[in-house]
Amino acid sequence: MFACFGGKKIYTVDETTKNKITDMENNKTIYDFKVETITGETFDLSSLKGKKVLIVNTASKCGLTPQFEQLEALYQKYKDQNFVIIGFPTNDFMSQDPGSNEEIAEFCKLNYGVTFPMMAKIVVKGKEKHPLYQYLTEKSHNQIDDFDIEWNFQKFLINEDGTIDKVISPRVLPDAKEIIDWIEGK
């Protein structure tokens, strides 16, 4: 439906169409995002369609940093079973990851043998929050709930359809039964 005023078209959208447009805009998944790898390349999260994904914000100088070892073991055990871990370094909690992307990559490789995909350092809370973390933490984006990032090593368990299934506390270890059961579909 449209109307003409002074030679300009003014389009109006009926409520049903407006609701459909809003539903399409709000029906996002992680597949709608591209992120930067720790080496500076673009990583399209749509390449993960059909996989279970564990997204974790990491830090190199945190009391929970030893979780890198368990994350890597988990990745090695399940990477051939449609499962992937993606790490996002952040310096948001007491400046516990102040290094450059190169320094973080070297630290993870040398100290924990990390081979799962690590992304460039990002902001996971506050006004400068990365768009992916806006999706993960804000109901207005994920249509599920608002989730606070408690600390480094908070885990988001993403279903094969690209939506959030569970949010796991930073203190829950990567090899916890609830995470293993989720990966194995129990």
Results as ranks from 00 to 15, higher is better:
residue 118 M to R: 03
residue 104 I to M: 01
residue 182 W to N: 00
residue 134 Q to K: 14
residue 179 I to T: 04
residue 25 E to D: 13
residue 93 F to S: 07
residue 119 M to V: 11
residue 173 L to R: 12
residue 21 I to D: 10
residue 135 Y to W: 15
residue 134 Q to L: 13
residue 119 M to R: 00
residue 127 K to P: 06
residue 47 S to P: 06
residue 112 Y to M: 04
residue 30 I to C: 03
residue 61 K to A: 11
residue 110 L to F: 07
residue 104 I to Q: 04
residue 71 L to Q: 02
residue 74 L to N: 05
residue 137 T to N: 05
residue 141 H to V: 04
residue 48 L to T: 07
residue 78 Y to V: 09
residue 94 M to K: 12
residue 143 Q to M: 15
residue 122 I to M: 03
residue 171 R to T: 15
residue 178 E to W: 03
residue 44 D to L: 08
residue 70 Q to F: 01
residue 72 E to I: 03
residue 32 D to H: 13
residue 14 D to I: 10
residue 166 K to M: 10
residue 61 K to E: 14
residue 150 E to L: 14
residue 148 D to Y: 09
residue 59 A to N: 11
residue 60 S to H: 04
residue 171 R to D: 13
residue 44 D to F: 05
residue 33 F to W: 05
residue 148 D to M: 12
residue 60 S to L: 01
residue 25 E to L: 15
residue 148 D to F: 09
residue 91 N to K: 02
residue 142 N to T: 08
residue 35 V to M: 06
residue 132 L to D: 03
residue 73 A to S: 14
residue 154 Q to N: 09
residue 6 G to Q: 13
residue 182 W to K: 05
residue 31 Y to R: 09
residue 54 L to D: 01
residue 162 G to V: 00
residue 152 N to A: 09
residue 177 K to H: 07
residue 157 L to M: 14
residue 163 T to G: 05
residue 64 L to D: 07
residue 26 N to E: 14
residue 38 I to T: 07
residue 162 G to M: 07
residue 115 T to A: 06
residue 77 K to I: 05
residue 7 G to E: 03
residue 84 V to S: 12
residue 166 K to W: 05
residue 40 G to Y: 07
residue 176 A to S: 15
residue 19 N to M: 15
residue 62 C to V: 08
residue 27 N to K: 13
residue 16 T to G: 12
residue 31 Y to M: 05
residue 90 T to Q: 02
residue 127 K to L: 12
residue 18 K to F: 15
residue 122 I to R: 05
residue 147 F to N: 10
residue 176 A to E: 09
